[in-house]
C-alpha cells in the first residue's frame, strides 16, 4: 500500500477533454480533507465486513470505492452515513470525530446518499419525491405545512424553486408530475440523485449510480455526476462496478477486497497495481 506517497502529492486529474473542442482545464488540486476514515473495522457476528480500513476524502474531489462483490463497499458507505456503527476505528467528518451517529444526524451535517436498490416513494410524483429531500431544510412543522398559508406558503415556494432548479439541472422536466413507479429504471436513478441533491449536501454518497443502465444512460449519469461536482462543488464518493466509468470520472480510487483495503490512488496507479489485478481476475485467498 503506497497511499502515503499518493496523499502527499497534490492530486491532478483532468475533466473529460476531447481534442480541440471541449473545456480548457487545468490540473485539479485538493488539499482540505473533508472526511477521514481511520482503522475502521465492522463485523456482523463472525463475519468481518470491514477490517482496519483507512482512507480519506478530500473536499471537492470525486472519490470512487471499488471492489468485487462482497468486498464491503456498501458497508463502508453505510458506516460513513451512520447507518452502521463500526466496532473499531473512527470517522472524522469536517474535523469532528464521531462514533455513534444516526443517519438523520449525518444528513443534517450535509451527507446525502442514493441507494443501490432504488428507495423512492413509488406512488409519489418526481416533484414530490425530490421535495422530500428538502424536508430537513424546512423550518415549519407538519401543522403549519398542512395549513399552507402566509410564511409557510413563502417557504414552500422557496423550496419549490430549489427543487425546480434541480429538475432543470437533471433535465427531467417532462416527468415532473409522473408517479415515480411508472418511470424506467434509469430515470428513477436520476430522480433519486435529484432527491439527494435537494439536501444541498457537501458530501454525496452514490451507491452504484449506474448499475443496470445502458450505455447512453450511463453517459448521461456520468455527465450529471461531473456537473454536480463541478457546478455545486459537491464532494462525491461513489461505488461503481463499471471500470470504464470509474477510471474516467474519479480523481482517486480506493479498492476493497474481502473487507480489506487493497490499494488507494489515482485511477492510473490503481489500474497498474498487481493486488488489484489479482483481485479482479480471481486469485485464491
Amino acid at each position: 500500500m503506497n497511499d502515503v506517497s499518493v496523499d502527499q502529492a497534490p492530486m491532478t486529474s483532468e475533466l473529460s477533454t476531447d481534442q480541440s473542442g471541449g473545456p480548457v482545464t487545468g490540473p485539479r488540486l485538493f488539499n482540505e480533507v473533508l472526511l477521514e476514515v481511520n482503522n475502521v473495522s465492522l463485523s456482523f457476528g463472525g463475519v468481518k465486513a470491514l477490517s482496519d480500513i483507512s482512507f480519506d476524502i478530500k473536499k471537492g474531489e470525486v472519490r470512487a470505492i471499488i471492489g468485487p462483490n462482497g468486498a464491503g463497499k456498501s458497508s463502508m458507505l453505510n458506516c460513513i452515513n451512520g447507518f452502521y456503527h463500526p466496532q473499531e476505528g473512527t470517522i472524522t467528518y469536517k474535523g469532528k470525530e464521531r462514533r455513534q451517529m444516526r443517519p438523520h444526524e449525518a444528513a443534517k451535517t450535509g451527507i446525502a446518499r442514493t441507494f443501490q436498490n432504488i428507495a423512492l416513494f413509488r406512488g409519489m410524483s418526481t416533484l414530490d419525491n425530490i421535495m422530500t429531500g428538502r424536508l430537513l431544510k424546512m423550518k415549519s412543522n407538519l401543522f403549519w405545512q398542512a395549513l399552507y398559508w402566509g410564511p409557510n406558503l413563502k417557504e414552500e415556494n422557496e423550496h419549490r424553486e430549489k427543487v425546480e432548479h434541480i429538475i432543470d439541472f437533471l433535465e427531467i422536466q417532462d416527468i415532473r408530475k409522473t408517479p415515480v413507479g411508472r418511470l424506467p429504471y434509469g430515470l428513477q436513478k436520476r430522480v433519486e440523485l435529484g432527491r439527494a441533491l435537494a439536501m444541498e449536501p457537501e458530501l454525496l454518497l452514490l451507491d452504484e449510480p449506474m448499475a443496470g443502465m445502458n450505455v447512453e444512460e450511463k453517459e448521461d449519469m456520468c455527465r450529471f455526476v461531473l456537473d454536480v461536482n463541478d457546478q455545486f462543488g459537491t464532494t462525491i464518493a461513489l461505488i461503481e462496478h463499471d471500470m470504464g466509468v470509474v477510471m474516467d470520472i474519479s480523481d482517486r480510487v480506493v479498492v476493497l477486497d474481502y473487507g480489506r483495503k487493497l490499494a488507494d490512488g489515482t485511477p492510473d496507479e490503481v489500474r497498474s497495481n498487481q493486488d488489484v489485478i489479482d483481485a479482479y481476475l480471481g486469485v485464491s485467498h
Binding site: L15, G22, P23, V24, T25, F169, D227, D230, Q231
Partner: peptide
C-alpha cells in the same frame, strides 16, 4: 452557461 465554466477560449 451550464457546463461552460471551464471553457476559457
Amino acid at each position: 452557461d451550464r457546463g461552460m465554466r471551464h471553457y476559457k477560449q
